[in-house]
Design a protein around this nucleic acid. Sequence first.
DNA 1: CTGAAAGCGCTAACAA
DNA 2: TTGTTAGCGCTTTCAG
Lengths: 335, 335
Amino acid sequence: MVDKKVSIIDVAQRANVSITTVSRVLNKVPTVNKEIVERVEKVIGELKFKPNPTAQRLARGIENTAIGFVIPGYPGIFHSFYAVELMRGIGHGCETLRMDLIFHITDGTNPLRTSYAGGLIFADIIENLPQVDAAVREGVPCLVINHIVKDLKVSFLAVDNIKGGHMAGKYLTSLGHKRIATITGNLQTQAGIDRLEGFKKALLEEEIECPKGYIFEGDYSRRSARQAAEHFFSLEDPPTAIFAASDDMALEVISVAMENGIKVPEDISVIGFDDNPAGLFGPVGLTTIKQPLFTMAAEAVKVVHELMSGKQENVVRRVLDPDLIVRESCAQPSI
Amino acid sequence: MVDKKVSIIDVAQRANVSITTVSRVLNKVPTVNKEIVERVEKVIGELKFKPNPTAQRLARGIENTAIGFVIPGYPGIFHSFYAVELMRGIGHGCETLRMDLIFHITDGTNPLRTSYAGGLIFADIIENLPQVDAAVREGVPCLVINHIVKDLKVSFLAVDNIKGGHMAGKYLTSLGHKRIATITGNLQTQAGIDRLEGFKKALLEEEIECPKGYIFEGDYSRRSARQAAEHFFSLEDPPTAIFAASDDMALEVISVAMENGIKVPEDISVIGFDDNPAGLFGPVGLTTIKQPLFTMAAEAVKVVHELMSGKQENVVRRVLDPDLIVRESCAQPSI
DNA sequence: CTGAAAGCGCTAACAA
DNA sequence: TTGTTAGCGCTTTCAG
């Protein structure tokens, strides 16, 4: 049966050696007699002995080498290019630094068991500002991604979403569009709010109206984009251009358009946000605002690692610039 | 500056109490004098003392409570509904059992640092059978998801993909289709192979030909589905029905169809695989084969947990049945 | 209510 | 080459 209590002592006794020797063969110290090595290994096999990693860490004086990645569990988050890119970046960063990656999928209510994690990365924050607060208060090194945190002394790495939204709006107006609509992201997220704000600002600068009916509150999902598109297309005075706050949504808008015989970009211009590679393979290359998700996430790991090791003591706060990627989904209005 | 070495001893000395007492306030033992509690907490704050979790675990005799989730890092895996559902399920399972979830994104070459993890869950296996082998050999409890492993004595939880492919094929033939094509999944994965096999079997049973041109090797991505669809639609004798090995691919087929003025299901029937909710919101409800991804993953955590705790000693091998979900994307052929 | 002391399971000087 | 003996930092009896 299973004995959970086989310890190094049992092995030592049964093999007639000291625990030190057992430890040596465990750690492959080369100065051990071959015969003994064999004997010990045999016993280890017989007893199915597995060294206790916790004890090893303690004895070795190993600092905590795990980073927790806290990701809000709201429906759909995982389906987004956004979350996925972050995960890839974080995975990559951890791999490079040989850190363990611990996942916390949270709805923001649970107190967040830090457990092994010596540092925390929050993928955006929605309902879980209190968790960030608690972590900071406890002195756990942490960093928030894609959220410019003003009221808390915590590190963050964020994309300038206001600028991004502004770029999108500006590009559309520069093409000559006057009737420009937008599908917002989840307005619970700062990114959603900021992209909308930047977009509005761009229109304002050109003194272009953006009536209520031209602003549809989405949530980054294809589903909401479909509703939005159907709404826009049914308007008496439909827009000639649409800014979708994510590529997924932009792609869905294009789908709906084509289903209705509306040509992109001839009849309607569509610009997205993300630079999701999926935008390359549709019927028409998607013009979009690129944000360095992968890089940002990888960088986040590096920063938290420095925070953990004490190499960096101050909060680091960095805002990155998005880029306009011009492909084929936007053109001058035909009218 | 940062002192990494503040230990419970420092706190005890500075607060003029024993380490035992400090430990007590740390663990909120109620029988401590209020004044002392305050004093100790003050010192803890001043010193920014954080108890060492490793030491706590050792002293408390806590077993390893982390499960490692090993996920192949091939491009696109994260974008799939598949991986995402597994992650959700695993996250949920870990939450319920209060286990830590450690992520390993691997290309199969690295030796896989088990580190904290006391058990391992492999999300499918492609290049990383050796890793599974190594883990088994080391005696680490592990389980493979969605892969029926024959040559290794390891636990698995899998969906019967042959049956699933067969159901899809059968359903299409039962509607009267004779010209049926398929877009396979990644044929590096067992799921991809099996769905194709089941599909072929179903056609064979009805003595329906499936010419080479009707089998397009995809990789679960929308991109590959687009290529496939364009290929099929350009055929002299295009199929009247298509089985796509994932819903994402099926959805893309529908998109391409609509772009080309081909009606679904009037002109072409499309059936997918997964039961991705995205299939509900398109222009036409997607008929599909449902597999219990979330449940399977959550269950996997439970099994590994039992394996770790010794409640379960045998390998557990379970094959689950998929379901046919009929919506609107399939109909009888018009010709 | 508080403290001394014995571990938790393992590693790492230091001897032998 | 192998064993002895301190710890690693904290929890937990068991006295006081």
